[in-house]
């Protein structure tokens, strides 16, 4: 993939997976996200770009309610997943997170074996009836995360012993083992070298076939390479949201243009 052919990218679908309506997020007195409205399509890679502290990670963490773990964080507005409000009182965040998986900035495998890392999610959600089913899930997830060939002979080795890029792909395997519908990625390549980054980016493109992927990235090249849609955040506002090609070649808002040409950020 390269940046030149991004204009040719077409959306595979027009189904909306996630809808955000007037979302505001406050950390104590700080107003971190201001009236964000966005529609994220199914089977699409959506990139969130913007300068540091613009709220893109915060908004990402709202989608699977990871912000619930922060005491001072308060979210208003609605986020709908398949038309259901995930901030409804009846929604248990645990159930939500099984549907909306997450990959973090720093590879964070559990200090357990590679097998257990992947099997942990399916195990707590009861997705397998027996050992052979579990083996299947583990193999399928590792294959999808494009790491199976590298680790198939040492599934009992600790996940923390892998290289950074392998660890991150292991984390992706762990996230997709629970069969989520949406995969959130918070700067998944920021701790990786260019080769590992290329592997993960390739993987993200493949994952689009089965999941809606939302990726936060600092690298505009990466956003251009992997995403079909791009949202530009600035100071807590969603400045512009549209097809990646359009954002990068013909942005409507002057702030977007300033950012992608390197004048702000």
């Amino acid at each position: 993939m390269n940046t030149m052919n991004m204009l040719d990218k077409t959306l595979d679908t027009n189904t909306t997976k996630i809808t955000a309506r007037d979302v505001n997020v406050y950390y104590g007195d700080t107003h971190a996200i201001k009236d964000v409205n966005v529609e994220i399509a199914a089977n699409t890679v959506t990139a969130f770009i913007g300068p540091s502290g613009c709220g893109k990670s915060t908004f990402l963490r709202c989608i699977n309610r990871m912000n619930d773990t922060i005491d001072v964080c308060r979210v208003t507005g609605d986020i709908l997943l398949d038309g259901e409000d995930i901030y409804d009182k009846r929604v248990d965040p645990v159930q939500l997170r099984a549907k909306v998986g997450m990959v973090f900035q720093k590879p964070n495998p559990f200090p357990k074996s590679i097998y257990d890392n992947v099997a942990y999610g399916p195990r707590i959600h009861g997705l397998s009836k027996n050992k052979s089913e579990m083996d299947e899930i583990v193999e399928k997830s590792l294959r999808r995360a494009a790491i199976w060939e590298e680790v198939k002979d040492r599934l009992d080795a600790p996940g923390t012993g892998l290289s950074g890029g392998q660890q991150q792909r292991l984390c992706i395997a762990r996230a997709i083992a629970t069969e989520p519908e949406v995969l959130l990625m918070d700067e998944p390549c920021s701790a990786l070298d260019p080769i590992a980054t290329a592997q993960v980016e390739e993987l993200i493109d493949e994952l689009r076939a089965n999941y809606s992927v939302v990726i936060v990235t600092h690298s505009m090249q990466q956003a251009a390479r992997v995403s079909q849609k791009t949202a530009f955040f600035h100071l807590g506002n969603l400045v512009e949201f549209g097809a990646t090609g359009q954002i990068f070649t013909n942005p409507e808002d002057p702030r977007t243009e300033s950012y992608i040409t390197g004048r702000i950020g």
Partner: peptide, 27 residues
């Protein structure tokens, strides 16, 4: 115990208690 371990557990849908007893406490 680094918070990234708690995040990892919560991220795959573990409950708070599962993340504590399966991951944080052993570490």
């Amino acid at each position: 115990v680094p918070p990234s371990i708690r995040d990892a557990a919560l991220g795959v849908g573990a409950s708070k208690m599962q993340s504590v007893f399966h991951h944080v406490l052993p570490l």
